[in-house]
């Protein structure tokens, strides 16, 4: 079971070459197959995750949640998707048409690109990039531009306010996000995510880097615009933030991209701090799913427990608490590594 998918991929490439294709074309077709698998994973995840979030929030608020379609309401998301598919597409006449239309597409493309570097199992990643972690951070920060495009292109005051807030929030929390991962890079000595997983053979990095884990978790919550940091789309005061003017499929693409980002960031947290695909008994690709869903459930828990925090508190928390703490963590890690070498433990 362990090498099921890697063996299948190797057999597929071999079969393509026996058909007379050059190795480059066989690789391109394999990449296409991997792309289809990634898209399927994303789509299935969304269907499960939206249902799960509604059920979890219902549990927290002592409601029932969706319970009409199918067992425990599991088909509710599919019904919602069909409804969104058949909705009329309204583009406001005041909007900047080109920017308005490309913003959701840009957002989802950026979100899908995050999955290229995440190791989904032993030797299972779309592209084994040697700067995987840096690639993930840089591509992940591009979603700021998509939100700004949506807010600016809509020509709506709610949208622009939401967009400007989210840009300010995301650039502020990007600094502690990148700093907190530095400690892990210093210990493992590589930016390749497979190498980082391999470095956690004996000990997960959550034990060596607890401060980094907490700062990364808080910064990631803010990067994802999830509660308690969801000021950019605070429904009670901004109606819908940057998404106010969007209808039907365009709005659905934004929603899809948000959940895609959530899964990607959770998978990265599982990879970097929780030992990735390593684990006993079960095959590696099952372990990463279990760990990712564990992190996602913590995200849900945080969102439905804490009240939303105010904009000024939000910004000062990043600059006055998280940035100094994560910088201190880098120095602490460096000193720790030298102490460890001096004592002869590593």
């Amino acid at each position: 079971m362990e090498h099921l998918f890697t063996n299948l991929a190797a057999a597929f490439t071999g079969w393509m070459i026996t058909l007379g294709l050059s190795p480059v074309w066989a690789d391109i077709i394999l990449l296409l197959v991997k792309w289809i698998i990634i898209i399927t994973i994303i789509t299935l995840n969304i269907i499960v995750l939206i249902w799960l979030e509604r059920k979890v929030s219902a549990f927290f608020q002592e409601r029932l949640g969706p319970n009409r379609l199918g067992p425990f309401g599991i088909f509710q998301t599919i019904a919602d998707a069909i409804k969104l598919l058949t909705k009329e597409d309204i583009v406001p006449s005041a909007a900047d048409k080109l920017i308005f239309k490309t913003a959701p597409m840009f957002f989802i493309v950026v979100a899908v690109m995050l999955y290229t570097v995440i190791p989904l199992g032993q030797g299972m990643e779309v592209i084994n990039l040697n700067i995987g972690l840096l690639f993930f951070i840089s591509i992940g920060s591009l979603s700021t531009i998509a939100l700004l495009m949506a807010g600016w292109g809509s020509d709506n005051k709610w949208s622009l306010m939401g967009a400007v807030r989210s840009v300010a929030q995301m650039i502020s929390y990007e600094i502690p996000l990148a700093f907190s991962l530095l400690g892990v890079v210093m210990i493992s000595g590589s930016l390749n995510l497979q190498d980082i997983v391999a470095a956690q053979d004996n000990l997960w990095f959550i034990i060596l880097q607890p401060i980094a884990f907490i700062t990364y978790f808080i910064a990631a919550t803010a990067e994802l615009n999830r509660g308690p940091f969801d000021m950019p789309e605070a429904e009670q005061e901004l109606t819908g933030g940057a998404y106010t003017e969007y209808t039907g499929m365009r709005w659905a693409l934004f929603f899809l991209a948000e959940y895609t980002n959530l899964v990607a960031v959770s998978a990265l947290m599982a990879t970097v701090f929780l030992g990735g695909w390593q684990g006993p008994w079960l095959p590696s690709w099952l372990w990463i799913i279990i760990k990712t869903y564990g992190v996602i459930l913590v995200f849900f828990w945080v969102k439905w427990t804490f009240p939303r925090i105010r904009m000024d508190q939000l910004m000062s928390f990043s600059w006055k608490v998280l940035v100094p703490v994560s910088l201190g963590n880098i120095l602490l890690t460096g000193a720790g590594i030298y102490f460890c070498k001096w004592m002869g433990w590593c």
């Binding site: 690789d27 391109i28 990449l31 296409l32 792309w35 898209i39 969104l84 598919l85 058949t86 909705k87 009329e88 597409d89 959701p104 597409m105 989802i108 493309v109 899908v112 690109m113 290229t116 779309v126 592209i127 990039l129 039907g248 499929m249 365009r250 659905a252 693409l253």
Partner: peptide, 26 residues
């Protein structure tokens, strides 16, 4: 490979919008 992946990923939202165009009222 990254470039090819990026190019085919553009097809994903385009397909979604095309599918919506087929079904939605105009």
């Amino acid at each position: 490979a990254l470039g090819i992946f990026f190019l085919i990923t553009i097809a994903f939202p385009v397909t979604a919008m095309g599918l919506a165009w087929l079904f939605r009222p105009k």
